[in-house]
Amino acid sequence: MMEGSSPAKAYLLHVAVIALLFVLNFILPAYHHGLLARILVLATFAMGYNLLFGYVGLLSLGHAMFFAAGLYGAGLGVHHFGLSVPVAFMAALACGAVLSLVIGLLALRTSGVAFMIVTMMFAQVLALAILYFAPLTGGDQGLVLQQQERVVHLGDTVLDLTNPTARYMVALVLFSIVLLLTLAVVRSRFGRVLIAVRENEERTRMLGYDTFANKLAAVVISGVICAAAGGAYALLFGYVGANFASVQYSILPLLWVLLGGAATTLGPLIGTLFMYYIVDITSGYTSAYLLIVGIALILLVLFFPKGILGTLRQRWVRWLP
């Protein structure tokens, strides 16, 4: 984190992770290949959550609404308005930006538990609205995007997002951009202020920082990243469903981030990966897999309270961003 300490190591690590994920595209069996593409998109969601929760210390229980804003922004755009894939993705980002700006302006008047409750209420409003406007949104059935709606024409090249490799690569590009963006943000002067707000908001204010404006900027960046993940999810996997706006999808990114390590750049990926595979493996053996997930989480909180990477950083790898 310290300016003057070599940033090269941190960037090298992140590029190496991206390179590894790139290589995995060619060697993973089909099943895991598909799973990892999904995990990369959800890890992007988690990275957006982590920026606000991990670095600014704002615990939102409503981030499903930002994911859903992107999901529906892109999905409805394609389905009802015939938007092309890139335009639909832009629509997802715009929806995320507008929603997070409005929510930020309202919810940041509160802090602590009140902030959790307010964000949760707003997310609930969006979830109910999605069900209420069923003719438009497909209600709890959701919408399925057709194959021909998910083809990108870039000049002469055609990118079919239903093709597994194309899907994986697009997911990887999104993930990589957001990962490097997060790294750049948390190492920047702005990132330093965000961490200061988390550590001692009053002191930060008395050092000349407009803490409200900084928190608002963080909410919007976080919201746009989550909406990008949502938009990508709709376009890559062709399904837009109301369950993604439910409380469950507000809690999940929190768990992924806690598991991987809050306020670590790579924690969201590690957390999402672990959680996804724990659920995937245990649900193959027993219907009580949620119990096992719960136990795993309790053990983690007991022995790795800072998450996997957080503990790693504390004990061994101090320079981990």
Partner: peptide, 27 residues
């Protein structure tokens, strides 16, 4: 203003504590 009750960023290094005001004046 320096606080009567010491109000520093306890979890951050001394360096980071001072970096915040320094970058403020630079900005």
């Amino acid at each position: 203003y320096t606080f009567q009750i010491t109000s520093i960023f306890a979890n951050l290094s001394a360096y980071e504590n001072v970096a915040l005001p320094v970058q403020r004046t630079l900005t």
